[in-house]
Nucleic acid binder design. Structure first.
Lengths: 329, 329
DNA sequence: CTGAAAGCGCTTACAG
DNA sequence: CTGAAAGCGCTTACAG
């Protein structure tokens, strides 16, 4: 391994000067600087970041924990964040917890041991014990935590999409197209926006919100099929991309044509939805990613206290061809 | 920051002993061990991995560079590799080069400065200069390099899918269904398998291979449309997932029904292809990922020389409902 | 503009 | 079974 001392010897300076040259630190005589750089290139030297991190007590490394490894949304966020962060000399350590809170806990411990500056994650809390150990760790850790997508901890900085606004937007779109019998499929946490849209129209939802939180794929498939057959909705609104995928399968297996037999709206946009001209509620992924990067960069200067903030982004409606005005009733 | 010295003081031992306790190193009196662990838990101490890495000259960190940030295939590989590696105490630093060879070069420099053990990447070579600087770096670096998916460097370990076998398999499948007029769309590097399948059937391809390497999405769209209209194939075989996506759009815009109007086969499997019952050539992603992990773990023991190896995996045919026997001619 | 010394938090011989 | 010392490769005062 080539160290600053090797360079120093060949360039006829001290390793202190080599270090300074690489950091553009204090003024160095231009000739000296050039000599150091030439020797370094020749030897293939670059400063050991591990040593530098240890000394400076700053790794310039961010830990990102992904809970839904299959969801392309996170690929996009990861891509964006890494690219921006890299420009500013940061590095990204990535881990997958597969939705398992114990696994997430271990990953956090490991990232902490790795002295990352920041941990970006979607807190997984299945019990108060989960909650407490996480909360206590976060309180005592010198690491900054950023909650992504969800935000169970109120006093910890979070960035997420306003899901209720999204479900409001979607429901309103369906209602304004004359659909009263809407089958909502998905996470109960999005029920508010749906109800709000009905209230605004001075209507009451004739069909019960179909809560599929925590259901397996198979169970979801059957629930959706049953609800579709029983409730005879004129429109379906599935409230996450994975559920949209299953819903499309059911519709297809039931030989129900979109949009002639039934209107279909998806929460979360995805490539296949675009391909099939299915209207969707999209998320400003890039805006969210950018703001996270800015937050992280802001930690560099604000040395001490950082006040927690919550930032939510509004989803938007992407009209394609899966929602038709309803003439049926 | 809590260090081993803090723990040592409270536990009434030396920090050397604390270090040993955490590494399960030499034998430590059970009581001493317990005391150390109790104190550590109380203080929330865990060994600083940066310091440990510096001292041991081993970061247990792998750098993964992703060239096609949009391709879900790499998400799968990343997920799998990270999960397996984590079990063995390794960490994953991820970067995106967006297909830009200079960016890739910078990332490699940065990963090297970060003392990663291994760099997994798809070499991006657009000129002999690209080739030479990469090759020279790899030769002189203490880091192990693993070529992923493609392998321009013969004497550097690589893991990839046998693309020509895949295109052979697909072409054969189409031919055996009576399709002679096959429109092949995609990377010219897959032409061999296609020709081999024709040869085996003692046929000559009536339609020219449509090489779209380096085309923009828009250009590809128009090329495919034109070829489809001009050549009147009975089957299309698009030789990468992004091209399958575009091909599907063209087919859809041309109102050509799959499989009644035309048979369709996709290289690279993806969720939306499954949803639409489109037959595909799949890749054993998990097998590839596992073997990469095993390779990395093997570096732990084999201290000195590692002999470069090439490992390719055979793609397989996934029959769904997009290929129909051809009765047209 | 440059250098010698100290130290970041560990681990590794060496010694007992 | 445990400790004191040295050192990993840097950076940071301190001094000149």
């Amino acid at each position: 391994m080539i160290t600053s001392k090797d360079v120093a010897k060949l360039a006829g300076v001290s390793h202190t000067t080599v270090s300074r040259a690489f950091r553009g630190d204090a003024k160095i005589k231009p000739e000296t600087y050039q000599r150091i750089m030439n020797v370094s290139k020749e030897l293939g030297y670059s400063p050991n970041r591990i040593a530098s991190s240890l000394r400076q007590k700053n790794t310039k490394t961010i830990g990102l924990i992904i809970s839904h490894g299959f969801n392309p949304l996170f690929l996009k966020i990861t891509h964006r964040i890494e690219t921006e962060l890299a420009i500013h000399g940061y590095h990204l350590l990535i881990s997958f917890d597969d939705g398992d809170s114990d696994k997430q806990w271990n990953i956090i411990q490991s990232l902490a041991a790795g002295q990352v500056n920041v941990i970006i994650f979607t807190p997984l809390i299945h019990s108060t014990a989960d909650h407490n150990r996480l909360y206590s760790l976060i309180q005592h850790s010198p690491i900054r935590f950023i909650q992504l997508i969800s935000n169970p901890f109120e006093d910890i900085t979070s960035f997420y999409f306003d899901d209720n606004y999204g479900s409001y937007l979607g429901t309103r779109h369906l209602l304004s197209n004359g659909h009263n019998r809407i089958l909502m499929i998905g996470g109960i946490n999005r029920v508010e926006g749906y109800e709000k849209a009905y209230q605004e129209s001075e209507l009451t939802p004739p069909i019960k919100f179909s809560d599929l939180t925590g259901s397996t794929e198979e169970a979801s498939y059957h629930n959706i099929k049953e609800a579709l057959l029983k409730e005879k909705p004129t429109a379906v609104f599935s409230v996450s991309e994975p559920l949209s995928y299953i819903t499309y399968q059911v519709l297809s297996d039931l030989a129900m044509q979109i949009p002639s037999d039934i209107s279909f709206l998806s929460f979360d946009d995805e490539r296949w939805l675009q391909l099939l001209h299915i209207s969707a509620i999209g998320h400003p992924v890039q805006a969210l990613s950018n703001v996270i990067v800015r937050e992280i960069l802001s930690y560099e200067t604000s040395d001490s206290e950082v006040y927690p903030s919550s930032t939510s982004f509004k989803p938007f409606l992407i009209e394609r061809n899966s929602v038709l005005p309803n003439n049926k009733q």
